[in-house]
Amino acid sequence: MPDLGLDVLLKGKNFARLLGGLGIALRISVISILISVVLGTVLGVLRQRENLILKAFMRLYLEVIRIMPQLVLLFLVYFGTTRSFGWDLSGETASVIVFSLWGTAEMSDLVRGALSSIPGHQYESAEALGLRKTQVYLYVVLPQAVRRLIPLSINLITRMIKTTSLVLMIGVVEILKVAQQIIEANRMNSPNAAFGVYLTVFVLYFLVCWPISVLAGKLEKRWG
């Protein structure tokens, strides 16, 4: 049995440090997800309005955000805006800004899709039954739209958590950076640490994302 370098994790506080790094990555994800869900829902509902300027603006926003790799967006905000506008951004703030911009764009598209997937006769039947506008939305449209929306937005959440791993590239000390530090520090006494430690990081990410994906799949099957 070759040395897999897993023993490093049992030394001192190494495993706890790794989990702490995961915590930082997750904190960035959770803040961005909360902002994205709220703003994305508002923008998604607004996109239902027949306002050409608003529609064109939203379209542009969505396309611009979607075509660029998230890492490029991170670079633009972290290196670009700080240089151009002369402000000071921590890597973590820059990440939250970028992931919120991106998440909001994706979420608004999901909300728009869910709302427009409700066929017109649902609105008409509800009105024919004498429901008021707010009642139509509250009792007829929303319950159906939310069922379509929730599995998709849970998928978006796992995508956002996975994307958070990129913050390493703009110098945020998260799980992967901690892993590098641990491997560097034990280079002499545990030369194979890279295998065990990166494998552990891989498994930890999987353990975070997998249950969420399973939940999304279950909900999709039940409500789909």
Partner: peptide, 24 residues
């Protein structure tokens, strides 16, 4: 499919590029 969809590419690359050479 579950492993690949629930982990980020960056982590997969780190494992392939830095981890796997340790076991040959």
């Amino acid at each position: 499919i579950e492993l690949s969809r629930n982990t980020p590419l960056l982590i997969q690359l780190f494992f392939i590029y830095y981890g796997l050479p340790k076991i040959g």
